[in-house]
């Protein structure tokens, strides 16, 4: 009997995590928004980048990731699927071709679901940027919330 009770406690205890999810945004108050991620490599053609994006005020969660504007980074970047429905993600992409963007270019777009109409507070950290030879280069990363029309 004690063994059955222990087994039941284990099963229900593990199952509790499935139900202990964060509350969904209230009906009618959540909104979807998009944040464009830019990398400015100045005059150097950008061949690879890796950056970390975090929503710091906890009002939004990542629901989608999109590629950039230039053909070299048009495909969605690499990211950890665990980032979905959370506030932090690491994006990375590279292109071994010859046609690479230089200057400021949009490399990705992150789609977020925000709980309310309050402002987003985010942090962006460029972890790596490389040129066509694979050498690290100095670059700047920035983000901009896309304004709805």
């Amino acid at each position: 009997m004690a063994q059955i009770l222990c087994l039941a406690a284990m099963v229900f205890g593990l199952a509790a995590g499935l139900f202990a999810q964060s509350a969904a945004p209230e009906e009618g108050r959540s909104r979807f928004c998009a944040v464009d991620i830019y990398v400015d490599s100045k005059a150097t053609p950008l061949a690879a980048y890796q950056l970390e994006f975090v929503v710091t005020n906890g009002v939004a969660r990542i629901v989608g990731i999109e590629g950039g504007e230039h053909a070299a980074f048009h495909e969605p970047p690499f990211y950890d699927p665990k980032a979905m429905q959370h506030e932090r993600v690491i994006l990375a992409a590279f292109n071994t071709g010859n046609k690479l963007p230089s200057g400021k270019t949009r490399v990705a777009t992150i789609h977020l679901q925000a709980a309310d109409n309050g402002p987003l507070q985010c942090e962006l950290k460029l972890q790596a940027a490389g040129n066509a030879a694979g050498v690290r280069i100095a670059a700047e990363a920035s983000f901009e919330e896309r304004k709805s029309p």
Partner: peptide
């Protein structure tokens, strides 16, 4: 290697 580079340590929560 690319997958490892973007792996989130200890979950995706900030």
């Amino acid at each position: 290697i690319a997958v490892e580079a973007v792996r989130l340590d200890k979950g995706g929560r900030s």
